[in-house]
Design a protein around this nucleic acid. Structure first.
Length: 837
RNA sequence: GCCCGGGUGGCGGAAUGGUAGACGCGGCGGAUUCAAAAUCCGCUAUCCGCAAGGGUGUGUGGGUUCAAGUCCCUCCCCGGGCACCA
């Protein structure tokens, strides 16, 4: 009987479930391993193969760690609050509670079919009241510590969605969902003071094993700049600016304030009032897209004059939208000679440009490079290199009382409110606009009430605001009539601490017992998409730090090691008019693609899977046709984990074929007679096994899953041709296969090798270094650096031996004829290179 | 514009500075079969050549080295991130 995944896979999934094989232990004296996948949003469409592609790596390493004797925590859950479920509620009237529960059930079913070794007893959903109770509680901790506050702030207001969006939900000035225009609007918002952690979020990046690219993205987002604050006097009003180039202060010929700057009101001269007001109104009404699209410098003179503390000259004060209110002090000293933006503005407004750093032609363009200070009074001749000019000028400004060294960050505080239904209610009671108190742990959770209308009200109020019976509270603590906050938390709230909840998922007295988090945390391997590089991964780090400061967790960083998985793409076919042709209608002939209906030649493109393009690959079908093991192996084999890779239908067939071949290493005949015997293994086969153990083990550690599979292909091919039957060799092979293709490995272990109790905890095979090496190797012989022959010799052969063997080689002889060897380069085990004349 | 990645056969991809193309797809040829499917075996970078053999080859041009896909510099192209952050 051939290998039959349809029979084998469900039976082992049942075995694992019945035996609770993958339940994480509670013996905290054992060494632990915490492998975590970024949990999915349970969409109504179910999984696509990108999900298992992302989850396979952590599953493989979890399986290897169990075999190595670790206590492994490998959980899964659902990031269940979010817009799609709410949109469905708005569109179809299905309560998000219901659609989310259905979607989760489907996800769970599909995930189990993939054979992942999750501890299902720890499954969580961020939308479950017993989970979001603790999300709300953590919010009250932040509030108590002064890390959550309400503030009037410019926010990304999307009129079409009727809600406020976080920065990472806005792409190119449009909403991430729907692509609607986004405007700036002043609103009172709950905000998390993530900026308080800027320095630590930056510094601690050096302590974690993350992709450099991702660390760099976080560094850029945090955006630390060192420079100085400098005070300018404008008729008794102090304008403070931030600059990274205090050494250019003698060239500051005007100042610019952000239009929103509160001092604009005070500073503006009566004659300029109308122009200033008009410009402010214009800026306020402009959407982000317009502001970005238009890099032309515009601005208005306020009429005010300020004294440059270095030159003591009076310089004009402008407002312009190229200065951002939220960064630095919202005001700048403009040095047109040495800053491109100031230069462009000066040209537009016809303002003077003065050279204060030599080395360029400031009338032609701004010179932002190094040079020597000129036109700078006492500093003339000071070189700017290595920041020495900056240091000297800053010290001088400090002595004058006109400035001080200052570090600023680009990072902004985190807007932590949505005017939406499907999120955690913010657990505070208010009277009018004033927060009276946060709810206490025993009053939580604040359950999301049922509502009749899910749509945003469009005024900025949440649909919750109309549920008066829920909003109005006779507060037993204060004795007052109070109102609940009707804003809800953003999607990133629940995902900012879920890794802690997995350590203690059923605790109803605390978000997570400190003993448990001390044991399990930090996460030893975290796998997820790089699109979360600066959103989720920054927020989660901040919550961890805040919880640490409050004494609730031990570690500064939640994720010790992070790796990203690439996107799984699939081919799309376009007809000559550019229309998408569904797969079912595509026919391949001689490497070209045609429309079966009309014979049009189609072009093939590799694109992100989407329903619209008709190129979504559904794991249900793949598993039905080829099995979960084949899918897992194929996903590994596609290419490097972090790279985006196309799903090619023929590719999975090849892996299914490999599994059938593997089956025949262990079974033969019509009735699957086990082939194993206790014969002594041959040296060649033993060597191959040890090489493979080494290769596969090391590749799993490096998450080089593609080359690990390749090694398994090779050993399968060669064991078949060598007729290997020895138990000593076949048992370790089954174990090496287990992390990748666990169902077939279990079946082989039981029926092929006669073991009961499952393969998951059988000690991982170790290679013998001596056996993992070849005794002799085939070595290339180069003549003048070009490979001309191949010789076989002992790995550690000395130069004389190698040379002798080479000189006996017919190809070498041919090349040496009539020549003399002038130099021999020999690296044992690597190369022999003969330099001849 | 700035900051990261990355360009290797027809395709996905392998290669601690040491025989480029492992493994797989596709293609070609063969075995098996009444035939097919399935399975198995062989070949498959490219050019010249009947062959033996040789030339050329890792985006481009240069450099370092006995030896470069790998290190350094120049440019081109693709992907991602940031985008008036003073």
């Amino acid at each position: 009987m051939p290998y039959d995944h349809r029979r084998i896979e469900p039976s082992w999934q049942e075995f694992w479930e019945v035996n609770q094989t993958f339940k994480a232990g509670e013996d905290f004296t054992k060494k632990k391993f915490y492998a975590l996948d970024m949990f999915p949003y349970p969409s109504g469409k179910g999984l696509h193969v990108g999900h298992p592609a992302s989850y396979i790596a952590a599953d493989i390493i979890s399986r290897k760690r169990r075999a190595e004797g670790y206590n492994v925590l490998h959980p899964m859950g659902y990031d269940a609050f979010g817009l799609p479920a709410e949109q469905k509620a708005i569109d179809e009237g299905v309560p998000p509670q219901q659609s989310t529960a259905e979607a989760i059930e489907n996800f769970r079913r599909q995930l189990k079919m993939c054979g992942f070794s999750y501890d299902w007893s720890r499954e969580i959903s961020t939308a479950a009241p017993d989970y979001y109770k603790w999300t709300q509680w953590i919010f009250t901790v932040l509030l108590e510590r002064g890390l959550a506050y309400e503030a009037e702030a410019f926010v990304n207001w999307c009129p079409a969605l009727g809600t406020v969006l976080a920065n990472d939900e806005v792409i190119d000035g449009k909403s991430e969902r729907g692509g609607h225009p986004v405007e700036r609007k002043l609103m009172k918002q709950w905000t998390i003071k993530i900026t308080e952690f800027s320095e630590r979020l930056l510094a601690d990046l050096d302590t974690i094993d993350w992709p450099e690219d991702t660390k760099l993205k976080q560094k850029d987002r945090i955006g630390k700049s060192q420079g100085a604050e400098i005070d300018f006097d404008a008729g008794g009003t102090k304008i403070t600016v931030f600059t990274t180039r205090p050494d250019t202060i003698f060239g500051a010929t005007y100042m610019v304030m952000a239009p929103e700057h509160p001092l604009v009101e005070t500073l503006t001269r009566p004659a300029q009032r109308d122009a200033v007001k008009a410009y402010q109104a214009r800026t306020a009404s402009m959407s982000e897209i317009d502001r970005q699209a238009n890099k032309q410098k515009t601005g208005v003179d306020t009429g005010a004059r300020a004294i440059n503390p270095a030159t003591l000259q009076a310089i004009p004060v402008y407002i312009a939208d190229y200065v951002i209110y939220g960064y630095g002090t919202g005001a700048i000293m403009a040095v047109p000679g040495h800053d491109e933006r100031d230069w462009a503005f000066a040209k537009a407004m016809n303002l003077p440009i003065v050279e204060v750093i030599s080395g360029g032609d400031v009338q032609k363009e701004a010179h932002s490079g190094e040079g020597q200070m000129v036109n700078s009074g006492p500093f003339n001749g000071t070189p700017t290199a290595n920041g020495q000019a900056i240091g000297q000028v800053t010290r001088w400004l400090e002595e004058q009382g006109a400035g001080r060294a200052k570090t600023t960050f680009k990072l902004r505080d985190w807007t932590f409110a949505r005017q939406r239904y499907w999120g955690e209610p913010i657990p505070v009671l208010k009277k009018g606009d004033q927060v009276v108190r946060a709810l206490k742990a025993e009053e939580l959770p604040v359950i999301l009430p049922e509502v009749e209308r899910y749509a945003p009200t469009g005024t900025g109020d949440s649909p919750l605001s109309v549920v008066r019976s829920w909003v109005e509270v006779d507060d037993p603590v204060t004795g007052q009539k109070l109102e609940r906050e009707t804003h809800t938390m953003p999607g990133s709230a629940g995902s900012s601490w879920y890794f802690l909840r997995y350590c203690d998922p059923q605790n109803d007295r605390a978000f997570c017992d400190r003993k448990k988090s001390d044991y399990w945390m930090p996460v030893d391997l975290y796998v997820g998409g790089s699109e979360h590089a600066v959103g989720h991964l920054l927020y989660a780090r901040m919550w961890q730090k805040a919880l640490k400061d409050a004494g609730y967790v031990r570690d500064d960083e939640p994720f010790a090691k992070l790796r990203h998985q690439g996107m799984i793409t699939a081919f799309c076919y376009y007809d000559p008019t550019g229309r998408i042709v569904p797969w079912a209608k595509v026919e391949e002939r001689g490497g070209k693609f045609y429309n079966k209906d009309n014979g049009d030649e189609l072009s093939q493109r590799d694109e992100k899977m989407s329903k619209r393009k008709g190129n979504v690959v559904n794991p249900d079908e793949v598993i039905k046709d080829y099995g979960a093991d084949a899918m897992r192996v194929y996903l590994c084999f596609l290419g490097p984990l972090d790279q985006s890779k196309p799903w090619v239908p023929q590719g999975i067939e090849a892996q299914a074929t490999w599994l059938k071949r593997l089956w025949r290493v262990f079974f033969e005949g019509e009735t699957d007679t086990p082939r194993v015997d206790d014969s002594a293994p041959t040296d060649a086969a033993t060597k191959l096994l040890h090489k493979t153990i080494k290769k596969v083990s090391e590749d799993i550690e490096g998450l080089r899953l593609n080359t690990a599979i390749s090694a398994l292909h090779v050993i399968t091919r060669d064991f078949l041709s060598m007729e290997v039957r020895s138990r000593k060799l076949l048992e370790p092979l089954a174990q090496l296969v287990q992390p990748f293709a666990p169902h077939i490995a279990e079946e082989i272990w039981k029926r092929g090798l006669g073991h009961e109790g499952g393969i998951s905890y059988v000690a991982w095979p170790l290679h013998d270094e001596a056996l993992a090496k070849d005794d002799t190797i085939k070595m290339g012989v180069q003549i003048l650096g070009k490979t001309r022959a191949e010789i076989e010799l002992a790995v550690d052969a000395d130069e004389a031996t190698a040379l002798a063997v080479a000189q006996a080689n017919k190809d070498v002889i041919r090349y040496l004829e009539g020549k003399t060897i002038t130099k021999v380069v020999y690296k044992a085990g690597k190369i022999l290179n003969l330099i001849i004349k």
